[in-house]
């Protein structure tokens, strides 16, 4: 039940600073909160509201619209198996059945050791590599039952720790705009003129 840590508040302010209006940082900050706690807590939403100038209800309204935000703890590994057309045509449903029996849970469930949560996902933009799945948003393509079992074994053994961070972290690289290189965000109402390079002449 945590507000953002000091380090994350610093990151949050850096992210907010990139947008002409702070509210735009809402989704990135929700990701940051989920990275911190594994899921989104009420305290974090209230804190984000303070940071971006929104009420908690507004932050919750935004957060609950999006599939990736979880309001209850999920497993360390969230396994999303695609169930949309191309994957379904290529055996996605069998893969789900297999996953359910291998992990002993239903789609939507979490294993009792807290390691795995299974979810049925919508099209993952890997349709030519069907059936596919994601583990914490890292792809696995043309997954057979055997592949799936190997994957679970590897995850259980911690062999993929370097490749797949625990649930909450999506990208493990962040954008950083160096102070001396960035133009900086300006509130739209403070801009009155067209950009400098539009004077009709060559810019160089």
């Amino acid at each position: 039940m945590a507000r953002l840590t000091e380090e994350n508040v610093r990151l949050a302010r850096e992210i907010i600073g990139r947008y002409p209006k702070p509210r735009s940082a809402t989704i990135p900050l929700l990701h940051l909160a989920q990275e911190q706690d594994g899921h989104i807590t009420n305290d974090a939403m209230a804190h984000i509201g303070e940071l971006v100038g929104a009420t908690s209800a507004e932050v919750y309204g935004t957060a609950s619209f999006y599939e990736m935000f979880k309001f209850e703890p999920v497993g360390k590994y969230l396994i999303n198996i695609c169930g949309t057309m191309s994957c379904a045509l290529m055996g996605g449903e069998e893969l789900m059945h297999h996953a359910e029996s291998r992990l002993g849970i239903h789609m939507g469930g979490t294993t009792s050791d807290g390691l795995f949560t299974l979810e049925k996902a919508e099209c993952q933009a890997a349709c030519t590599e069907a059936p596919c799945l994601q583990v914490n948003y890292r792809y696995r393509y043309r997954v057979t039952s055997e592949n799936f079992d190997t994957l679970i074994d590897q995850l259980q053994a911690g062999e993929l720790n370097s490749e797949i961070p625990a649930h909450g972290t999506v990208a493990s690289v962040r954008q950083h705009i160096p102070a001396d290189r960035g133009v900086g965000a300006v509130a739209p109402e403070d801009v009155t003129e067209g950009p400098a390079w539009l004077d009709g002449k060559a810019a160089l």
């Binding site: 990135p28 999506v170 990208a171 705009i177 965000a185 160089l204």
Partner: peptide, 17 residues
């Protein structure tokens, strides 16, 4: 080195078609 200045900000979604 030109007059052309622009920031590109990476923004990312959270799952909603």
């Amino acid at each position: 080195g030109s007059k052309f200045s622009v920031d590109i900000v990476l923004h990312w979604g959270a799952g909603a078609y």
